[in-house]
């Protein structure tokens, strides 16, 4: 099984006609994702070619796209100035699962978008995230399909390419994945480590979880406490940013040590205190995962 989405998920793409949107939409369709429509305001009525043989309609609004196609998930590739509004539009149209890839959205915009999504009962993944991939089933976002394979590991990460690095090692070591989720590098994100852990706990196929965290905030500490109280499958962790100086943002808007809180040392300790084995190098993640599965 997979978490949140699977091969039956009906996906629309907001910003389908843009440079990034069109490229990644075709990548997703080629992987097997059921892309049913696109939305670009002002371009309704056109169609978008997923491949040489297949095309999908483009709508002016998400509400129209949902009404016509029964879509239940959306992937957002619109520029930062309009991305929060795109999330709110999807939430308002009743889309249950919204993936926002866009990086650089004003934080105050996101306070309002998250509030509306919560009111409407929608799950937002991201923003500033690579998305979610269920190997062999579907992908929503930009995680390359070539690096994943089906298997027993669930993976949750705040990062993009570091996730690929970890998945690459897992796949090469013969450890496939049920689902890989990139929750995003922003300070305000819609889906947390704990949300994903709870979903993996309910998935009978997930036999171990890998959590890739980084400096900034306390999400890893909360996740560690949740793991020790609720989860009976093994968890392996990694924290990026041990060498990051305090008070400086490390690329991701959320990756900043404020005062003495949010350090890699604090997060590593929280993991270890709660029985989570912590890899010292990215390559070690797969080694610890294999050990924890007794393989």
């Amino acid at each position: 099984m997979s978490i949140y989405v699977d091969e039956t998920t009906r996906v629309i793409v907001q910003g389908i006609t843009g440079r990034d949107g069109s490229f990644h939409t075709r990548q997703m369709a080629a992987y097997g994702t059921r892309v049913v429509a696109g939305v670009t305001p002002g371009k309704g009525g056109r169609s978008f070619a997923l491949s040489g043989k297949e095309e999908v309609p483009v709508y002016d609004t998400v509400a129209d796209a949902v009404a016509e196609t029964g879509a239940n998930a959306s992937v957002i590739y619109v520029p930062p100035a309009f991305a929060a509004s795109a999330i709110m539009e999807a939430a308002d149209a009743g889309v249950g699962f919204i993936v926002c890839v866009t990086e650089g959205i004003p934080v105050l915009d996101m306070t309002r978008a998250h509030a509306l999504a919560r009111d409407r009962g929608c799950r937002v993944l991201g923003p500033n995230c690579p998305g979610i991939i269920c190997p062999g089933k579907t992908t929503l976002g930009i995680i390359p399909g070539s690096i994943v394979t089906e298997g027993p590991v669930g993976l949750i990460s705040r990062s993009g390419t570091l996730t690929y690095e970890a998945v690459h090692h897992l796949t090469r070591d013969g450890l496939g994945q049920t689902t890989c989720v990139g929750i995003g590098g922003d300070p305000l994100i819609g889906t947390s480590f704990v949300d994903c852990l709870a979903a993996f706990a309910d998935d009978p196929d997930t036999e171990a979880v890998v959590m890739i965290g980084e400096i900034g905030g306390t999400a890893e500490q909360e996740a560690a406490a949740w793991v020790s109280a609720n989860l009976d499958i093994p968890v392996v962790g990694f924290i990026a940013g041990r060498t990051a100086p305090p008070g400086t943002r490390m690329g991701h808007a959320g990756a900043i040590i404020s005062g003495s809180s949010g350090t890699a040392a604090e997060k590593t300790r929280a993991f270890e205190d709660n029985g989570i084995k912590v890899a010292k190098r990215p390559a070690e993640i797969a080694v610890l995962a294999r050990e924890s599965l007794g393989r």
Binding site: L162, R242, T248, M250
Partner: peptide, 25 residues
């Protein structure tokens, strides 16, 4: 972000960039 060491790092992605610095250390 400027740091004090002597290994210049050029990486794609913030998470991988942090992990690379950590691995240098």
């Amino acid at each position: 972000v400027k740091l004090e060491g002597n290994v210049g790092c050029c990486v794609n992605g913030a998470g991988l960039a942090m992990a690379t610095m950590d691995l240098v250390k």
